[in-house]
Amino acid sequence: MFLIHCPHCQEDRPEIEFAYAGEAHIVRPGPEQQDAMSDAEWSEFMFIRDNVRGEHCERWWHANGCNMFFNAVRNTVSDKFIKTYKIGHKRPSASQIQKWKDAANG
């Protein structure tokens, strides 16, 4: 069974309780910024994503659990979760992700 660690419940829970919610750390422009944006910029914000091969920061939703959104670093090739963290934390740097991977491996 595939387990995901929920940073709110602070335990490993079955994947069936969770829902994927897109790429993380995308800042929604405020109303004034939106007015100033061109159509091309708006479509970029709406539709263009990094589609990373490898470690990807993404949002997950513990829909059938504590009902909270949180962020996760997941390897899109191996589907392995490296770390989950609460929304509000900064996007982890490459060296931070490497540290987490080293800690997980031993």
Binding site: E11, R13, P14, I16, E17, N64, G65, C66, N67
Partner: peptide, 22 residues
């Protein structure tokens, strides 16, 4: 329900929202 229901992980008094047969 796929949760671990051993007393160590799911002690008496614990509650949670989860799924049962989806």
């Amino acid at each position: 329900c796929p949760l671990d229901l051993s007393l160590e992980h799911f002690p008496v008094g614990k509650v949670t929202r989860t799924v049962f047969e989806s």
